[in-house]
Design a protein around this nucleic acid. Structure first.
Length: 609
RNA sequence: GCCAUCUUAGCUCAGUUGGUCAGAGCACGUGACUUGUAAUCUCGGGGUCGUCGGUUCGAAUCCGACAGAUGGCUCCA
């Protein structure tokens, strides 16, 4: 309720949260088995912790995606060395072949048993009336637990788990509650699966956009100049330009108009919109100009509405589709900032659609279809929708809500998208569709959002004149496809691991002369490529050819055009494709043609064929 | 914001118990070499060891505060 329109939250998959939170049992046999393994490994870890810290107080320890965690209150902070000791104890316990014994007790018995465990006592009281209170015991450790577990520790593998990290976590996730220490671990059926998972984690680390961004000289942040604010370097900016050029073209040819609006607005605007009531804690402090308070904008919507209201709008004018790459500033708590994915200043690829109630269904379908096309063009094919409906506290009448939600559902089904319902998960001002996009490493990212707004048109008293001559309230839909350009860039970097397709690559071709004698010809080739619109660099340094090729490879440049005696004679180029493949000798003109074609068709793969 | 960890040259990192410990590789500059598909060699410049304060004869090293970064923190048997 405190948030009017946020697309910039929940940077990463909520899969983990869902597994940890929902009551849903695992779907498949394999999931069921892993669930038991992880849950049981968590108990084994708790027993190991108990051995090291006899005074430990235990909170909760559920299985999560790929692993498990357990929260404790301990007499001192854990160190990485502690994890090794705990792991050692765990291996010992696992090899001990202890069985997991289930036992049902009364609430009073449970409370007595856990007299020295305040968190457990609290948990007993949260078990719904009528549910059994069950305990699981293995070895010297007994836990209040719903189960299920493996039958015995011998069904766990001492070589298929690993403790990964220590983190702080509030008891019951409430920042007013005590801070506990959480140990995260991963557990699998076999050592091979564990290795595969650890390899996956290594790959994720390798592709980290913060690392790749520095290596490829794409962007930076500066603590002296303010955290969470992104500096786009020339190469990063070049990629952004390619993204924005595409974005603009796609919007213009899909019936959108473009807007530019100010970066700040007087307090009147934010009072009117309600942001100062509901969103103030996320806004930058006001600056005073001529005795008035101005705020840096956290959202673009009020500005677009101002433009809407400059004229009396007729039903004949609608729908209006207004898009803006609007840069907004939001105060994010210091602990949540993360590279490009969670920042304090960012550019939304924002749009607002104003339409009549009759047009809503078509508009929603069109905007959904459009966003799917955009994602496919960037090489993301695995997309899932989440349809969020009316929460308890909300504005607007029932009819509008159900009509809006219905149009969202119809659009999803018309596009054949798989989707999940998020009942009551809509914003207070309207239902929405969120799209989650899976990247090359199988991670889900929440990027696009399509949201109805029954609040702002009311607050700003927006209207259009209908065919019966009466003034009516237009429907307003917010939508962002890429979300924020910064965050999209971060995901893009990790999706491609920095090896961008030609149409996005900041440098598409590096021309490498084999010796200074061919510098002139190399420049001629570069000019020919440049004339065809290719982004090309010539390496005229006095480094050796091998070093030049290596540098281009490290920079993940798609093509290296090598020129020497043979090429000069035939006006050709010897092209090496990123990854090492070699194209057949071709003329410089033919190569330029090829790159230009890949550029304009936004080819994603780099096939030598 | 809260918990933990971290902060040494542009980057990646060494620096044993506080006492020539301010180092290496890459990058950068210089000179030589003039090369056919992932690193040629030479020499050189560069850091008040995040900031401020404290302990000590002496601090990159120990203590505290602050800043930033990193891993986490809705509900949760």
């Amino acid at each position: 309720m405190t948030v009017l329109w946020r697309v910039h939250i929940d940077t990463r998959t909520s899969l983990e949260e869902r597994m940890a939170t929902t009551d849903s049992r695992p779907q498949t046999d394999r999931e069921e088995e892993l669930y038991r393994i992880r849950h049981s490994t968590a108990h084994v870890m708790a027993e190991a912790v108990l051995r090291v810290f006899p005074d430990a107080e235990f909170a909760i320890g559920p299985p999560i995606e790929n692993g498990f965690y357990y929260d404790f209150r301990l007499p001192r902070s854990l160190t990485p060395e502690d994890l090794e000791v705990i792991e050692e104890h765990m291996r010992e316990i696992i090899s001990g072949d202890f069985s997991f014994e289930r036992q049902v007790v009364s609430r009073d018995e449970a409370k007595q048993l856990f007299a020295s465990q305040p968190f457990k006592v609290e948990l007993v009281d949260t078990i719904p009336e009528g549910d059994e209170v069950s305990l699981y015991t293995q070895g010297e450790f007994t836990d209040l637990c719903r189960g299920p577990h493996v039958e015995s520790t011998k069904q766990l593998s001492a070589k298929a788990f690993k403790l990964l990290s220590v983190a702080g976590a509030y008891w019951r996730g409430d920042e007013k509650q005590p801070m506990l220490q959480r140990i995260y671990g991963t557990a699998w059926k076999t050592p091979k699966e564990l290795r595969a998972h650890l390899d996956h984690l290594a790959e994720v680390e390798k592709r980290d956009h913060r690392k790749v961004g520095r290596e490829l000289d794409l962007f930076s942040t500066h603590e002296e100049a303010g955290p969470g604010l992104i500096y786009w370097h020339p190469k990063g900016s070049r990629i952004r330009l390619a993204v924005e050029d595409y974005w603009r073209d796609a919007h213009l040819s899909s019936g959108y108009d473009m807007l530019y609006t100010p970066h700040v607005g007087k307090s009147w605007l934010w009072e009117k919109s309600g942001h100062l009531d509901f969103y103030k804690e996320n806004m930058y402090a006001p600056m005073e100009i001529d005795n008035a308070e101005y705020y840096a904008k956290p959202m673009n919507c009020p500005f677009h509405i101002m433009i809407y209201k400059t004229q009396t709008r007729s039903y004949r004018d609608l729908p209006l589709r207004w898009a803006e790459l609007g840069t907004v500033y939001r105060y994010e708590r210091s602990g949540v900032l993360h590279g490009l994915l969670r920042v304090r200043g960012f550019t939304q690829d924002d749009a607002h659609i104003f339409c009549t109630p009759d047009q809503v269904e078509d508009e929603i379908l069109t905007v959904l279809r459009f966003s799917l096309q955009v994602w496919r063009d960037f090489g993301f094919k695995d997309i899932k929708a989440y349809l969020a409906t009316r929460p308890e506290k909300s504005v607007g009448d029932d009819e509008s809500w159900s009509k809006a939600a219905e149009s969202l559902r119809k659009a999803i089904e018309a596009e054949g998208l798989s989707y999940e319902m998020d009942e009551g998960g809509g914003a207070f001002y309207g239902p929405k569709i969120d799209l989650k996009i899976k990247d090359a490493l199988g991670r889900e990212w929440q990027m696009s959002t399509i949201q109805f707004d029954f609040n702002l048109p009311e607050r700003f008293d927006m209207s259009f004149v209908d065919d019966d001559g009466k003034e009516k309230r237009p429907y307003m839909v917010h939508r962002a496809l890429l979300g924020s350009i910064e965050r999209f860039f971060g995901v893009l970097i990790e999706h491609f691991g920095g090896a961008f397709p030609v149409w996005l690559a900041p440098v598409q071709v590096v021309v490498v002369p084999v010796a200074p004698a061919f510098f002139e010809y190399a420049q001629k080739v570069a000019t020919e490529l440049r004339d065809k619109g290719c982004r090309v660099e010539v390496d005229l340094s006095d480094a050796r050819m091998n070093a030049k090729i290596r540098n281009a490879g490290t920079a993940k440049v798609p093509y290296v055009a090598i020129v020497g005696e043979k090429e000069m004679e035939s006006e050709g180029v010897a092209v090496r494709v990123r990854g090492g493949a070699q194209l057949p000798l071709m003329t410089a003109a033919a190569f330029a043609e090829r790159v230009a074609e890949e550029n304009s068709s936004r080819t994603l793969s780099l096939d030598p064929a």
